[in-house]
């Protein structure tokens, strides 16, 4: 067999090997693209689910805080009214209006009874986390609000994480599509290398360069 014929055979084997490599590369990329898409879908679903849970939690703590704060406001108002009536009763006593003073004291006791019962039912006075540390002190409403919103904040944090994950996988899936498009160009160049004689080395080399570029890009996508 003469030398040019041998070279032609070797070149054909080389191009076929490149084509096979490109095919396997494209096949792996297709798998990675599908995987990235699935992960993006799952993260997107999780993101929506956590958004729903966060929204439900906000509604729940809206109901709870409305109840707790209304009870606290009523309790405080009754206690203050009781105090004002007691002070007024003392003033009336000083002025010699004992009958009016006695009536006011009774009313003050009624208001105080309401306030005491409200306090006994209020989380602000029964829960040691929020109850005043000293008699007559104020409940720790900041701690109450922080505890109340913790669950919702946790859900929002998870939602944000899932959303970030979705964007990461979605971008990867898009990038894999771009690499697959580049591999299509490599296929085209390899086809030309097989069908032409004069420019075959140029087309084969171009295809190889394109494949190397695609491989490097794929590496970046995998590591990102």
């Amino acid at each position: 067999m003469n030398e040019p014929a041998q070279n032609t055979d070797r070149f054909r084997v080389f191009v076929v090997a490149l084509t096979l490599l490109n095919t396997i590369f494209a096949a792996i990329l297709s798998g990675l693209q599908v995987d990235a898409n699935i992960r993006a879908d799952q993260a997107n679903r999780d993101s929506q689910y956590y958004a729903l849970l966060a929204s439900n939690e906000v509604i729940r703590f809206g109901h709870q805080s409305a109840y707790d704060l209304k009870l606290l406001a009523t309790t405080t108002r009754e206690a203050q009214q009781s105090l004002v009536m007691q002070l007024t009763a003392l003033e009336l006593e000083d002025d010699g209006e004992n009958e009016s003073a006695t009536a006011l004291v009774s009313q003050s006791e009624v208001a105080q009874a309401r306030s005491d019962t409200g306090s006994a039912l209020s989380v602000f006075y029964t829960d040691p986390r929020y109850a005043p540390s000293e008699p007559g002190g104020l409940p720790d409403s900041d701690a109450y609000l922080a505890d109340l919103s913790k669950a919702a904040n946790d859900f929002v944090a998870r939602q944000n994480a899932a959303s970030d994950e979705y964007h990461t996988w979605d971008n990867k899936a898009d990038s894999y599509i771009a690499v697959l498009s580049i591999l299509a160009i490599a296929f085209f160049l390899l086809g030309l290398a097989q069908s032409t004689v004069r420019m075959r080395f140029f087309f084969a080399a171009s295809a190889l360069v394109v494949m190397i570029l695609a491989a490097v890009w794929t590496g970046f996508i995998l590591l990102s």
Binding site: Q64, K70, L121
Partner: peptide, 30 residues
């Protein structure tokens, strides 16, 4: 369920407070 719970809790608290007020009113000399 949460809405119904806190609605009932609100009425229950009001009932308890007004019951205590009625007790105090009865106990007064007025």
């Amino acid at each position: 369920s949460w809405r119904r719970l806190y609605e009932e809790a609100g009425y229950t608290a009001t009932f308890a407070m007004e019951s205590a007020a009625a007790d105090a009113m009865e106990a007064s000399e007025d």
